[in-house]
Amino acid sequence: MTTERAKKTARSRRQFLADTAKAACGVGVFGLVLGLAARQAQSLPPVALRPPGAGAEADFLGACIRCGLCVRDCPYPTLRLSNLGEDVAVGTPYFVAREYPCEMCDDIPCVAACPTGALDPKLTNIDNARMGLAVLVDEETCLNFLGLRCDVCYRVCPVIDKAITLERSGNQRTHKHAMFIPTVHSEHCTGCGKCERSCVLDKAAIRVFPVALAKGQLGAHYRLGWKEKEREGHELVPGIIDLPDRLPQMPGAGLGNPGGKP
């Protein structure tokens, strides 16, 4: 009788352990898939820009609860929530500069609406927003690079003359005219996307990318001589050796044909 019962409890205990292991494995596999999906979702496509005040993508995906209140309070058709099937993590707010840029509202209603702080409430001056960074990606088609005076991206910039300037240089094709090269300065560009939106080409020559994609980084050991000089008041290495300058090259000259003889 007692052995019978002991057998029974042993069996039910075994059953219990087996069931528990099964449940744990099933849920564990599900968790693994979910974790991988979460990893995948952290890669933001280059055209997707986050609203003002959003932190780094990994932080933003932990902070945003996908409520859409920012979308609702944006007075323009700028922001939208990602749908299932899009490349942006489902339910999160973003905009595409070429479709509708951020108008850089003074009162930043999207940030004010965010209940979680995923859009940082410490952002009170929209000029400090860093939604992305404009990059002139195609010098071959930009009209100003071709020697014309389009200037549209420059003129529409809300931070004109700081975020984007026109840098004058000589036209190497005509040797007569000047070129005005649109030049973006990362310390002022908010990434609003107005330049990309307004570029007159069929496909924009200037584009706004998430900052992580658009910005390079110097090695930590680099020192810029002229900056150091400015800081110290004198050259860091006095009497630096002067290397011989390379001669101006003849037409047709190259490393394989010094002097440019035929």
Partner: peptide, 16 residues
């Protein structure tokens, strides 16, 4: 599991 994955990935993973 949803909470563990959220903690490990640092994202609100279950909302995916």
């Amino acid at each position: 599991m949803t909470l563990v994955v959220a903690a490990l990935t640092g994202t609100v993973a279950w909302e995916l």
